[in-house]
Nucleic acid binder design. Sequence first.
DNA 1: CTTTGTGAACAGATTCACAGCG
DNA 2: CGCTGTGAATCTGTTCACAAAG
Lengths: 212, 212
Amino acid sequence: MSNLHVPMTTVQRLPSYLQALISAQAQRMPVINSVEIAEMVGTNAAQVRKDLSYLGEYGTRGVGYDVDSLIAHLARWLGIEQHRNVAIVGFGRLGGALQGYGGFGDRGFRVVAVFDDDPDKIGEPYNGCTVESIDDIEIVLAREKVDIAMIAVPAMAAQSVADSLVAAGVKAILNFAPVRIEVPEGAIARQADLAAELQILSFHLSSLERQT
Amino acid sequence: MSNLHVPMTTVQRLPSYLQALISAQAQRMPVINSVEIAEMVGTNAAQVRKDLSYLGEYGTRGVGYDVDSLIAHLARWLGIEQHRNVAIVGFGRLGGALQGYGGFGDRGFRVVAVFDDDPDKIGEPYNGCTVESIDDIEIVLAREKVDIAMIAVPAMAAQSVADSLVAAGVKAILNFAPVRIEVPEGAIARQADLAAELQILSFHLSSLERQT
DNA sequence: CTTTGTGAACAGATTCACAGCG
DNA sequence: CGCTGTGAATCTGTTCACAAAG
């Protein structure tokens, strides 16, 4: 019963459900049930059913979920029925890797613009898109109809880049710099701090070491 | 009151507290209080105090927290008093970027080994470490005293790489491949699926678009 | 007879509000 | 007094268990 309130925790699990369904589709399964989905993503069936029920009634009682149709519904909820255009700001090691990373294309995203402030890099064509000057950000973002940006610049520059992006109308930002960036109401930013992920793992290692 | 049970949600916030404290230290603040920390990381003071209280009584009532000593305590809980050695499996675009990424060194980690299965890459020295054959994983991990590994191989290969890592004694894995990997009891794996992060942002964009 | 969808029970995390301590 | 540390209250998310539906 699509009561216009999907919990954040549910949203975070939707991509994994979509992955599971695509894998089921690849195995030519026409129908899948909540137990099978749960196994594939490492949860329990009740969680899967509750999560999906926030989006609507997409299953058939006694049968399960039609794989193709559930994929379509999830893709629609995730806003990737059509590809979304993403931009990368910062063409250093990480930005370059993100640009070259093949894993976005078949997950609903297309990298259409890359920015840097280093004159040596600007104008260089890589993998079908040219590195643009960060000064042209407003024009290029509008021209390329970018709706998501990834920030891969040093921590010091991240907030000011975020401000430019928001000013240029970008409403969603994935920030790889290890600082919290502020965005105004109406825009969303997510933090992707790789070193923090390692620290969390390290905490668990320490726990293991401690209990000996 | 260090009652041997730190909630997962708290653990996930510890890296951001540490970052905030380091930034306070850089500004020569000798003492900081929960309100200031909360502002820096974007939470509220009660949350900060509760989180820190799971680790111990590190503050002084009426005063706040001594920056240097709290940094030391957090670093200890996060297991990064001494650097931890990490390995990267998969020297493609992403693996290469992780290897070259400068952001790990001052967060407590040292990349000491890189593996790939492509004979053309093996033996090449990059940035002070040589690409090793994935067949030598057990020997090299032991020699380099690796305790955390990052998986940056194609989805298909991720689980088998994880199995080798665990067999070689690695207890913590950060997996960048877009599949859930299984590790036995006693080891920990975290998922770092970049496309999933974009999908979560895209969901929010769709919500915004929907309510118009 | 099977599996969904969902209220109700439960568990866990956040926030409140104040006692306790420097 | 000021700020921490923490029980108690609240809120949010998860799990249970079953009625509803094919």
